[in-house]
Design a protein around this nucleic acid. Sequence first.
DNA 1: CACAATGACTTAAGCGCTTCAGAAAGTCCA
DNA 2: TGGACTTTCTGAAGCGCTTAAGTCATTGTG
Lengths: 358, 358
Amino acid sequence: MSGTRRRPTLDDVANDVGVSRATVSNAYNRPDQLSADLREEVLRAAKRLGYTGPNPVARSLATRRTGAIAFMLDTGLSAAFSDPALSITLDALAATVDPEGHALLLMPGGHDGGPRGDRVLTAQADLAVAYSLADGAPALRAVRQRGLPLVVIDQPVVAGAVRVGIDDRGGAAAAARHLLELGHRRFGILSAQCLSEPRGGPLSATEALRSRFRYNRERLSGYLTTLTEAGIEALEVPIWETSGLSRDHAMGGVRALLDRAPRPTALLCMSDELALAALAVARQLGLGVPADLSIVGFDDAPPARWAEPGLTTVRQDLVRKGRLAGELALSLLRGERPAKPATLDVQLVVRGSTGPAR
Amino acid sequence: MSGTRRRPTLDDVANDVGVSRATVSNAYNRPDQLSADLREEVLRAAKRLGYTGPNPVARSLATRRTGAIAFMLDTGLSAAFSDPALSITLDALAATVDPEGHALLLMPGGHDGGPRGDRVLTAQADLAVAYSLADGAPALRAVRQRGLPLVVIDQPVVAGAVRVGIDDRGGAAAAARHLLELGHRRFGILSAQCLSEPRGGPLSATEALRSRFRYNRERLSGYLTTLTEAGIEALEVPIWETSGLSRDHAMGGVRALLDRAPRPTALLCMSDELALAALAVARQLGLGVPADLSIVGFDDAPPARWAEPGLTTVRQDLVRKGRLAGELALSLLRGERPAKPATLDVQLVVRGSTGPAR
DNA sequence: CACAATGACTTAAGCGCTTCAGAAAGTCCA
DNA sequence: TGGACTTTCTGAAGCGCTTAAGTCATTGTG
């Protein structure tokens, strides 16, 4: 059987045709470097011998290009992808870098805010993208140590990296302002994971503002600043940190917030997923939305539109964010030094889940 | 600046310490092959020189191992991940192979039922996993051509590949039987993409049974066989093929199915996502579920539980499926020849979305 | 005390490809 | 007809690492 024989290499083809190895290489990589006839012959011989083209790893060694981009997350895949916002961003990123021959190497996170450092050190990638990792995640240090170019999304810029993010604070402020204008005075805040150890539970504002995740801090401070300016005692606003992104967990948090007396009339949620969980709980409790409770999310992922009632939320352009990250990645790979960190605008989208305070 | 200097290599460290290159290599890969003292010294020198460990690509070339597994999908990332079933399976797979040092290289599909063949030929991976690709996708041929080990999930086994799948037909039959027992006689079927070109529209049973996707064919034939056995004219049951997995598209299909006179009293949906779209449309149209319309899904992904009413669906063990695929992958990589294709059982989960025909 | 066994390191042969600086042969134009 | 170009192909030096086999000094053993 041919199965046990070693795979043919470039040399085998070269010998078979009687040309140099360089010529065979050129047949694949630089067709203009040899005559069409010879190229044909080489390709025919390759086919006959069962040679399927240059070995990718060897090629990478020689070119110093792997064609892969490491995409680093702060959680496991299941949790990460339960948020449509990620899928959309990732898709746009992948689609942008794909034409240039780059694929994504997935690096899920563990419990220290990102992938393991040693995984990053041995990953075969030309560049790393960090998606909302915790500050000081070991993975970031590893990237830097290795000298990999880095693009960060939704997190503080690391020395030498390019950043794309959104105006988290402004969006959060707009959400809070909207509710204030509707006359709300009693709020609850549903936050994603802030602390090192995922636990889920109530959080003080000071704790929450020290979250390891930048977008958390930004959104939270957007909420609180705006509320404070309206004369509301920010430190009294209950905050619940959910652990992980699963809806079940989030629903527990919502119940806890709504259990308080007096019950909040409005919930500020740091993501649409959290807001949808709130919507589900409200329904379970028989609370009318927005009659008894107003809910506002963040992201404007597709499910926000499908919800019943539609979710008032802060829209960010996820596709643009992913595409931009992809373009920055490509330009870094080309050796260019892209200048300014990009901060995309957001805008409030008012739908049916918010209404006047009663 | 040190930034412009070329990165140090194993040789640099070896020269610095005054030992052979092999010794430095051993310091990293086989600590037992040298004295602890020397190893310490080597590691210290490495640190001093800024050497971060063996270059992954060069190591791969020498060991003939990349540490990556190519995960091939039949659609873009965004569409693919909009189905939680995939996220869960993928997570379980990743978690299983991670401890052995394997990461996932994402290969999204184009419009011919899988990733491009040339991408597969140049992908740096030790093994490929095909997730529900279309029969005869070019990617499958490329994998085979390259001689990569292959694990297929939810699709027909390819020569030389190992397969893990579920009892699609049995599950579909159970779903249909359940509805029949409730007295339903007028059905509609909501199917995922069947044809080569995604278009979305009504489909004849014969067309649908020739779907390029095995799970489609299996589920469909499970539905139709069961209905036929109950004396229902299977060819008359309207089938709507949705294009892509997006909910908007699916909702259009549902409307089309419900527009018919007489209106179906029960909808058989090939995935939970489709069923949830049906639920949304029913609500829009003011149809009671299950009073006016019964809906059954497939997969029992988490959103099935959260729906209002809860979704009756066919549960498959997604975690187990992913884990099993991971284990099979590892065993293939170890050079073992894993025997039997695995077919996991499914079971009907009855919730609130189905009820007696009125 | 001779001999085998062990430990600590080195030698050297790869892994499979890219690419740059030529060499050889053919083409063009005055 | 001869020098200046082109075109086509080759030689050879890498890319950075792993690992089987071998050397040599020590240690243990009967």
